[in-house]
Amino acid sequence: MVELKLKEVQRVALDLLIEFDKICKENSFRYSLGGGTLLGAIRHGGFIPWDDDIDIMMPRVDYEKFLEYCHHDNCGFDCLSLNYTENYFDLFTRISDRRTYLVDDSREIDYKMGVSIDIFPIDGLGNNDSIALRNFNKGRFKRELLVASKWKKYFRSETRSILFEPVRMLLFLMSRFVNKQKLCQSVDATCQLNDFETSHFAGCISGVYREKEIMLASTFKNYQTIQFEGYDFDIILDYDAYLTKHYGNYMQLPPIEQQVSHHRAQYYWR
């Protein structure tokens, strides 16, 4: 087995992004770089140097159209999603490179996957901030339970307080008895209760930043292009509001000891 080095993983992921962008441009699908990928685009002009993943955000209607496109057309990658991939139980979609494969001892993966990029739907959350928070928290326990159901074994969180560990342990134990498919479908349906186009607030309900994901819906409706690793891709126009809410002073580099990848996975050439 030949393991991919960091730069190789980044190059494969970039190739996926280039193909994804081409499909979106040809079909007028709205999208934006998101999360750490958007941060990398603004702060570094490309990947965060110690990171290798790519995150995408799409308004729900464009997200569903993209999934339909991939289901009916022969793409140059595998599209892994809840409705079209057996044993896939995530609330977001991955597009995966067919030349590589993933080894991850921390979670159960019952489908073929290589280097991939994550595509998150942006859903409506209602028309004022209190309603948005209430809608965001609908199904929150089920979302946490769904995450725990994919752990192969219990492990300490690298991002949450030790005080939360008893809750994580309880979630892990409970998750051993759930039907992951029914749970995932139930949570996904809850995420889609509010229309994106008519909501004043919206967000990535399945995102890792919890309440920080709640934004004005207008944040996700206007776009510009930016260079990422020498290629032009779309980002939200109001990226400053998004990045500030997620990361605070996002232009400041983290301490050197934090400049490491938090991923446990390894990728290999087939």
Rank of each mutant, 00 (worst) to 15 (best):
F92R: 01
F66P: 07
K5Q: 02
M57E: 00
Q266P: 02
E229V: 12
R270H: 05
E257D: 15
I162W: 11
L39H: 03
E197Q: 09
P255V: 10
N87K: 14
D110E: 07
V2L: 11
M251V: 05
S96F: 15
W151M: 04
L145Y: 07
N128A: 09
I131E: 03
I95M: 06
G76T: 00
D78G: 10
K180I: 07
S199G: 08
I162V: 12
S206I: 06
M57C: 11
I54D: 04
L146K: 02
T198W: 07
E213Y: 13
K152N: 07
R134N: 02
A41F: 14
S261G: 10
I109P: 08
D73E: 07
N128D: 14
Y101T: 01
L163G: 04
G46C: 13
L173T: 02
I117L: 15
R156P: 01
F201Q: 00
V147C: 05
F155E: 00
E64C: 08
Q185R: 15
I23P: 12
Y84W: 07
D104V: 11
L38V: 04
H71R: 13
Y242Q: 00
I214E: 00
A217W: 05
G207A: 09
F136N: 00
I119V: 12
D15V: 09
Q252Y: 03
D78W: 15
F92E: 01
S81R: 06
D123Q: 01
R30A: 10
L145V: 07
S175P: 08
D238Q: 11
K22C: 04
A189Q: 04
I109V: 14
Y223H: 13
K112C: 06
H246L: 15
G124Y: 10
A265L: 09
Y84F: 13
Y88G: 03
C204S: 05
Q258G: 14
R134K: 14
K138T: 01
W269Q: 00
R94H: 12
K182H: 06
M251N: 03
V103R: 11
L102F: 12
I214G: 01
